[in-house]
């Protein structure tokens, strides 16, 4: 149960994040169209779909890297892309924490400096306080021992966790994860899942996660949307477990059951 005291400006009626009829395109090439979904406060929301369906592109439009061709992205009812750039940066800095697919640690800085940099730039804290807080954030993800190491010296899983610590640097209340378990072994990946749930509960944050790793999705996500590469929009809404057990759409079923089928859903070479 999230502590209500650290959730900002609570209003039960509006969802924390919402996409309304969003169309994303690169030039004439449409990635997703008429896409709508709500992300509720405190949830772990999964954006699912096969490779190349535009999951990461949808995430890009939510963290301010790609302006949608049409439609709105609402942050607590505020139309994010209609805001001035100044305001968008303010929202992003104050509320968003992003873990990129390849961790995107700044390679010239040590792990500690990676976490400390946003605090140095955007808070008035002194060096001692910044060091304490960045050490705490690294300790939260179990990486306090790597404070003085360079990203190049770390393994993939450690880099992911360090990237997560950096995403937490400014105490965001909305965390975006792009393929957090990609390239991790099952044990590391399940530890990362636990960590994400614990951080969500502890920090009272909301998590948007882009992934196609089924075990992780079933384990942590409590809501979600399924994107299709063929119809170029969402074809199902709900948590991964719900979609697996109750969704009748053959594409969703194939994905959730991890098989490649034809129209009748049976198909060759089933993996059960």
């Amino acid at each position: 149960m999230a502590d209500p005291t650290i959730v900002r400006a609570q209003d039960g009626s509006t969802p924390l994040l919402a996409l309304r009829d969003v169309t994303l395109a690169f030039g004439p090439k449409v990635i997703q169209q008429k896409l709508s979904f709500d992300v509720n406060r405190g949830s772990i929301f999964a954006v699912m779909g096969g490779s190349g369906c535009g999951k990461s592109t949808v995430l890009k439009s939510m963290i301010g890297l790609l302006r949608p061709g049409e439609g709105q992205f609402l942050v607590e009812g505020e139309d994010y892309w209609a805001d001035t750039e100044q305001r968008r940066i303010e929202i992003g800095r104050g509320r968003f924490g992003v873990l990129f697919q390849n961790s995107a640690l700044w390679s010239a800085l040590t792990v500690g400096e990676n976490v400390a940099l946003p605090m140095q730039m955007f808070t008035k804290l002194d060096d001692v306080e910044i060091r304490r807080l960045s050490l705490l954030k690294l300790a939260l993800v179990g990486m306090e021992h790597a404070y003085d190491q360079l990203p190049a010296e770390l393994s993939g899983g450690m880099r992911k966790r360090a990237g997560l610590a950096r995403a937490l640097a400014l105490d965001p209340d909305i965390l975006f994860f792009d393929e957090p378990s990609a390239g991790l072994d099952p044990i590391t990946s399940s530890r990362l899942d636990d960590l994400i749930v614990n951080l969500r509960d502890g920090l009272g944050a909301t998590v948007v996660i882009v992934s196609h790793e089924l075990p992780s999705l079933f384990a942590i996500a409590d809501d979600g949307v399924f994107l299709s590469a063929t119809s170029k929009t969402s074809i199902a809404h709900g948590s991964p477990v719900f979609l697996r057990d109750y969704c009748s759409d053959p594409v969703v079923q194939d994905f959730m059951q991890r098989r490649h089928g034809n129209e009748d859903g049976s198909g060759r070479g089933q993996l059960r």
């Binding site: 502590d3 300790a139 939260l140 502890g202 920090l203």
Partner: peptide, 10 residues
């Protein structure tokens, strides 16, 4: 609860 969960991670 929330604080305890975070402290448990440390």
């Amino acid at each position: 609860d929330a604080i305890r969960k975070l402290l448990d991670l440390l």
